[in-house]
Nucleic acid binder design. Structure first.
Length: 573
RNA sequence: GGCAGCGUAGCUCAGUGGUAGAGCAGGGGAAUCAUAAUCCCUUGGUCGGGGGUUCAAAUCCCUCCGCUGCUACCA
């Protein structure tokens, strides 16, 4: 048994997440956590809302609320949406928690003590009208290169050139539109990332074959381009305050940059979990000197630099034996009809509306079977409907339906005990041994598309078997032969429930219950651990079963038309 | 501009040196237990363009084109 620590990239607090964020971090982490739990490992699965930073302050202002209240509300909304998707983490914390404040300050003190922080003065844009410093991208003006009038201070969207806010012509605040802005000196703490290049290089290279190519390439790129020191404080109000004992109080009133404290919240949320469950110092056994723990991180590609460079530097620089990640699973983007999902323009499908139109497991299966693993991929309702209808309704749902109903019609709704498994059954068992082993391997490798293609092939093998065994034909002449096929069919349904649980926990339970109640307290439906000869011959003769009514309803053309109209599909951005 | 990823059948994607693959869609057939659901067979691609290395290239090299992202103060 292993101890498995799993974290999902923290969803930002500024609104309900869309399907792309869901598949790339929270859902993929949940599916893996369930898989490991199903295999009997000790798993701790941690997530939290990432609450600090300028966008939060501005969103709260726009909502007419103070930041704390805004975050309180948004946290609960996101938590509720995630629970509806059956994201089964052990704790869903908040980066604004006291635990994270304490840990963030601890890491900063360690870095300061070890000489890896440096005070530097930088030029910052200050808006008099807004009474605040503005990050570069919140300054807009005319691009000096192409004349585009809405260029942002960090980059011109029109000509894609990288800019400095000082370069802009007629620069103004993106918040208020006021041109009453000026450049002020501001003092900040810089993390000396450049000193960690050899250590990072060795660490990253040691994981070259364990991380997806995407992750390694991004990490490598940052080192190749020459790692710069990075400012880890900001001139805003909402964040973890820099303690006075760092740099003799020169940074009074400033807070840590959101990307400094956000990954530390993985540890913070673990402490929140321990505190909330009376587990005292147990949280530390997962993170500090935790040589027996294997740590997995799940994230979209935008988060990769922070997890392969920033956070590791924080940990290495602390001089303390905090756990570094073992495996990173990174994802590309899920697009919406070829364009971007956009929170600000509300383009695409978001978690709250997705769950309104269909149960979580429809989405969970589709998203994992089509996860953007090797390249960006595109969500369309047409594709979604075809996958749901074919894979879930026709191949899986109908299989459970046809065999349970036949059993009820011809065998009194009880597992028939007559006959012995013959050549047909032995061939199926041999095939299933292979396929289940392959499915398990893909899961261990965190290759979701391949894993789910194998899962589907397993369902298809069930249908193929049933066609060959044809109990509806044998029932007329050889009742025992028909009984064998029905018994095997019911065992298959039972097996399918176990195999599907990490991906579709609610439907797996429902499928399982058509055959028999889930054993134990049923928090987990375990992974099949025995050879298929045993797994597929475990139902007791005479045991009653129930009809699998429509498990997965098909998506109709009318629904498809309604949803594309409602969510604005069809025309790519 | 620089860097990274991607470009394979109508669609979604596997495939990193050895005769081009899967699922869906399309065509034909079988079966009639089932949500008209299943099963079998099958049509379909000069692997983005061009050049090179090699006995052999989707795969390695060069070059061009296209899409996406990053470019360090959005997260």
């Amino acid at each position: 048994m292993e101890r498995i620590l799993i974290t999902s990239a923290l969803p930002y607090i500024n609104g309900i997440k869309h399907l792309g964020t869901l598949v790339g971090s929270m859902l993929s982490a949940d599916v893996f956590a369930r898989f490991k739990k199903a295999r009997g490992h000790e798993v701790l699965f941690i997530c939290a809302t990432d609450e600090h930073g300028t966008p939060t302050e501005l969103a709260a202002m726009e909502a007419g609320k103070d930041v704390r209240t805004f975050c309180d509300e948004q946290h609960l909304l996101q938590k509720a949406a995630c629970e509806k998707f059956n994201l089964g983490w052990d704790h869903f914390g908040r980066s604004s928690s006291p635990q994270n404040r304490e840990l963030t300050q601890h890491f900063a003190r360690q870095l300061w003590k070890n000489g890896f922080l440096e005070v530097r003065t930088t030029k910052q844009v200050y808006s008099n009208a807004d009474g605040r410093f503005l990050p570069d991208r919140y300054v807009i003006g005319t691009c000096p290169h192409c004349g585009y009038e809405k260029a942002r201070g960090d980059q011109c969207e029109n000509c894609t050139r990288v800019l400095d806010p000082i370069d802009l012509i007629k620069s103004r605040s993106a918040v208020s539109g006021s041109d009453d802005i000026e450049i002020r000196d501001s003092t900040h703490l810089f993390l000396k990332q450049s000193e960690f290049v050899p250590k990072l290089r060795a660490w990253i290279d040691s994981h070259k074959h364990e991380w997806p190519q995407l992750v390694y390439s991004i990490a490598n790129k940052w080192l190749e381009e020459g790692l710069q020191d990075r400012g880890i404080t900001r001139d805003v109000d909402w964040g973890v305050p820099v303690p006075d004992d760092i740099a003799d109080g020169q940074l009074k009133g400033k807070v840590f940059y959101v990307w400094f404290d956000a990954p530390i919240e993985y540890i913070g949320a673990t402490k929140e979990w321990a505190d909330a469950n009376g587990k005292g110092n147990v949280w530390k056994s997962w993170w500090y000197d935790a040589k027996d723990v294997r740590y997995y991180e799940f994230m979209g590609k935008d988060n990769v630099p922070f997890h392969t460079v920033g956070f590791p530097v924080t940990i290495m620089g602390s001089g303390e034996p905090w756990k570094l990640v073992d495996r990173i699973k990174g994802f590309n983007w899920l697009n919406y009809y070829g364009g971007k999902f956009s929170t600000s323009e509300h383009r695409g499908v978001f978690m709250d509306s997705a769950i309104e139109i269909l149960p979580a497991d429809y989405w969970r299966y589709y998203l994992m079977a089509n996860a953007p693993e090797s390249s960006d991929s595109s969500f369309t309702f047409e594709h979604f409907a075809s996958v749901v209808n074919k894979d879930l309704a026709d191949v899986l749902g109908n299989f459970a339906s046809r065999i349970t109903k036949f059993c009820i019609a011809r065998f009194d709704g009880k597992v028939p005990g007559e006959g012995e498994y013959g050549d047909e059954e032995k061939a199926l068992i041999a095939e299933m041994d292979k396929r289940v082993a392959q499915y398990t391997e893909y899961f261990e490798a965190i290759e979701y598309r391949k894993a789910l293609a194998e899962l589907r092939a397993i369902w298809v093998a069930g249908n193929e078997y049933l066609t060959r065994a044809a109990p509806w034909t044998h029932i007329k002449t050889d009742r025992a032969k028909a009984a064998v096929a029905v018994r095997m069919g019911l065992n298959l349904v039972h097996l399918f429930a176990h195999l599907a649980w990490p991906v579709m926990p609610a439907m797996a339970r429902k499928i399982h219950e058509t055959i028999q109640p889930v054993a134990g307290d049923a928090a987990v439906i375990p992974w099949p651990s025995d050879p298929m000869a045993k797994e597929l011959d475990q139902l007791e003769a005479g045991q009653p079963i129930h009809a699998a009514e429509v498990l997965f309803a098909k998506i109709t053309d009318e629904q498809l038309a309604e949803w594309t109209a409602r969510f604005g599909g069809a025309e790519p951005a």
